[in-house]
């Protein structure tokens, strides 16, 4: 029997397969397709303090082996989330990781974290400091090591929950940002968020999504994500949750070999809603076939 259990901060997961923020709704959308209980963890759609309507349509378009999205963090706000969405999420069973984002400054991150910290059933917090689809913000927090350090430090002071910081790939040296989050006290980093991108309709000469640019996801970005996980893994000691174009077992295993302790399935949920369950079974089989007793032996086992 192979051991799939992993640990991220204080958080113990029965297997390393999570579903990524924004790509799994509030889980209820997927209940007809799979046994949600089997998931390692569920990361919620990003929640802001106040309700957000999100960006105008069209919000998505398909690109070669990928897709662009600019949803703009549409969510009902923390209060409604806690009242209407969270009880159902908690009933499912796997740890619930709540993704949060600030619409203003770092103070809102701290306020959100303080409120989420009070709910003991919530397993962990993921700081989304890397959403590319918020208008009027020239620089993402996760594009600046100092700003990143500041936000993570501020949040760390107000919560004892496991803290995960989600990083943007739209930077020159992602390892520098990862190091800043580690120094500020995050328990883990998740990477990558989407890559800023654009697609134009040549007939109308108009951008295909209303926000002009959006975030690229899907298998098209996987090699970029794997490279970043590998790079970051050499510079930090805390666990990495790897994501970006994971479509099946081989692509999930690729991230683990590169250095990810856990992986997150995003865009693939849209195409095959039960893919994360298939990946859990697939990883187990991969370990058995390769005579590996524990997933922990596979993490960062790249040969180069």
């Amino acid at each position: 029997m192979v051991d799939l259990r992993i640990k991220i901060g204080e958080l113990k997961l029965k297997n390393p397969v999570m579903v990524a923020s924004g790509a799994f709704g509030y889980a209820e959308e997927f209940k007809d397709f799979m046994n949600l209980k089997e998931l390692g963890a569920i990361v919620t759609k990003t929640i802001t303090l106040k309700p957000r309507q999100g960006n105008p349509a069209p919000r998505t378009c398909e690109t070669p082996a990928g897709m662009l999205n600019s949803i703009g963090l549409e969510n009902p706000g923390l209060e409604v989330f806690i009242r209407e969405k969270l009880p159902l999420l908690l009933k499912i069973g796997p740890p619930i990781i709540v993704s949060i984002a600030s619409e203003s400054g770092p103070e809102e991150f701290v306020e959100l974290a303080r409120k989420v910290d009070k709910i003991k059933e919530i397993a962990a917090i993921e700081l989304n400091i890397s959403c590319p689809n918020i208008r009027g913000k020239p620089l993402l927090i996760s594009q600046d090591p100092k700003a990143t350090y500041g936000v993570v430090r501020g949040v760390r002071r107000v919560t004892s929950k496991t803290l995960i910081t989600k990083l943007s790939p739209n930077v020159t040296f992602i390892a520098d940002i990862a190091k800043a989050t580690e120094a500020a006290g995050t328990d883990a980093v998740s990477l990558i968020n989407t890559i800023t991108a654009m697609s134009i309709d040549v007939k109308t000469r108009k951008p295909k999504i209303a926000s002009l640019t959006g975030g690229l996801s899907g298998p098209a970005i996987r090699p970029v994500a794997v490279r970043m996980v590998w790079e970051v893994n050499q510079k930090i000691k805390i666990p990495i949750i790897g994501m970006g174009g994971i479509m099946d077992t081989p692509s999930a295993v690729e991230f683990i070999i590169a250095g990810a302790t856990a992986i997150s399935v995003g865009t693939a949920n849209f195409i095959n809603p039960r893919v994360s369950i298939e990946i859990i079974k697939g990883i187990k089989k991969y370990l058995q076939e390769n005579n590996i007793n524990s997933i922990n032996e596979l993490i960062g086992s790249i040969r180069c």
Partner: peptide, 21 residues
């Protein structure tokens, strides 16, 4: 409409209505 997931998860295919998106 173009859709990504078709099952209500991605919030990609919204339409403006009197009750919001």
């Amino acid at each position: 409409e173009h859709m990504a997931c078709g099952i209500g998860a991605c919030l990609g295919c919204v339409m403006n209505t009197k009750e919001g998106f």
